[in-house]
Design a protein around this nucleic acid. Structure first.
Length: 386
DNA sequence: CTCAGATTTCCTGCTT
DNA sequence: TAAGCAGGAAATCTGA
């Protein structure tokens, strides 16, 4: 069932124009990140159907024709894959045109991207070859996604490398050293889209305990300057606001491994027909997925958050939830927990008071304030990334 | 295996 | 009355 629901999740993504679904807490267009045409063009809900059923754009495009954004996404993907410290990258190098990139020697790339350069170079060569030679893989993948979606069910991920790599040379991305993990994640990525998380947001811890505002990944992509690759980054590709048709996707805990339960206190049964709910719980809910960072990242991208939240006093770090439930749903999607509610989210927020990541704002509903142990939201900190 | 950290979930009571 | 807010308590998961 888990597999089925996972599949459902994938297909649902494909079938619904994510944020266009009318939702009480989420008017159409909300969070349609693609609005920011000039900034990093995030893969959005609107793009989902087509994108989701096929490999991501850079993967399918001859690197020669990559836009800066494609380059950024591509680099980000590898940053994440290798858990490379994105903060060491010069962002100027990450926004080159693909054509420029293609003319670079391996040494040049090494000098530009450091240890990541080698991987990038090989990936680039592979992609150049691939996109000039065949589309077999794409066809296969499309077939898999459209005709044999169940193959992407959780337990069958392991089969993918075999299935897809089989076509041989030219079939792929960075398969030069096709470790199982590489291949799987690559494929998985193609299925789930690269997005903010693929843009390097998961490359480093950013909890207040581990970073201060002056450090850590200040050059990370569009979002938080200091995310350093926080997993808290808005991974909108994975996020979509729920619609009435999504109930079956409710993850709940019904399908955890035998003997394992979902996170948190056991939920009381009574939520109606939530039984088919399940997307697998993230097996490794990554550290660094901090709620406050997630919130912060929504806030520092006003062009993207589209009315979910707003600054009340940017300088002071005071912000307000405008669509509290929608934010909670997004958070829930990020954590693969569609039963997330604002109530729960707010409880977690309140825990931040003690840690001084947030400060109380008395008497104002839905209003919070960043505390001294938070970072990355201040005007001076934001925007350094690019 | 233990432990700490970070939630998640539930609950009660209070406030707006 | 509903929606939020405050916290306590319990439980889980992950990483160290």
């Amino acid at each position: 069932m888990s597999a089925t629901c996972e599949l459902s999740s994938i297909l649902t993504k494909a079938n619904h124009a994510m944020y266009q679904i009318s939702d009480p807490g989420q008017p159409a267009g909300s969070l349609s990140l693609g609005d920011s045409k000039d900034s990093l063009q995030l893969l959005t809900s609107a793009q989902l159907p087509a994108e989701l059923l096929g490999p991501c754009k850079w993967y399918n495009t001859d690197p020669q024709f990559w836009s800066k954004q494609n380059v950024l996404e591509w680099i980000s993907y590898h940053v994440e894959e290798t858990k490379f410290d994105a903060s060491t990258l010069n962002m100027a190098y990450c926004t080159l045109e693909g054509s420029v990139l293609c003319q670079m020697s391996r040494d040049t790339m090494l000098s530009m991207f450091g240890p990541l350069g080698d991987r990038l170079y090989h990936s680039l060569q592979d992609l150049k070859a691939k996109n000039s030679v065949d589309d077999i893989t794409n066809d296969i993948l499309n077939t898999l996604f459209t005709d044999l979606p169940e193959i992407f069910a959780e337990d069958t991920y392991n089969l993918l490398p075999t299935v897809v790599v089989a076509p041989g040379p030219g079939c792929g991305t960075d398969f030069s050293k096709p470790t199982s993990r590489d291949v799987q994640s690559e494929l998985k990525m193609m299925g789930e889209l690269p997005s903010w998380s693929d843009l390097g947001y998961e490359s480093g811890p950013t909890s207040p305990d581990s970073l201060d505002s002056s450090s850590a990944g200040m050059q990370n992509f569009p979002s938080s300057p200091d995310s350093g690759g926080s997993d808290s980054e808005l991974d909108f590709s994975e996020m979509r606001l729920p619609s009435a048709t999504d109930s079956y996707q409710e993850p709940g805990r019904a399908e955890l491994k035998p003997g394992k339960r979902g996170r948190g206190r056991p939920r009381k049964l009574s939520r109606g027909a939530e039984d088919c709910m399940d997307t697998k719980k993230s097996k490794h809910a990554p550290r660094g997925t901090h709620l406050w960072e997630f919130i912060r990242d929504i806030l520092i991208h006003p062009e993207l958050n589209n009315g979910l939240m707003k600054w009340e006093d940017r300088r002071e770090g005071v912000f307000k939830f405008l669509k509290s439930e929608a934010v909670a749903q997004l958070w829930g999607q990020k954590k693969k927990n569609s039963s997330m509610t604002y109530e729960k989210l707010s409880r977690a927020m309140r825990y931040y008071y003690k840690r001084e990541i947030l400060e109380r704002v008395d008497g104002r509903r839905l209003v919070y304030k960043f505390g001294k142990n938070s970072s990355g939201w201040k005007v001076g900190e934001v925007g350094l990334g690019m």
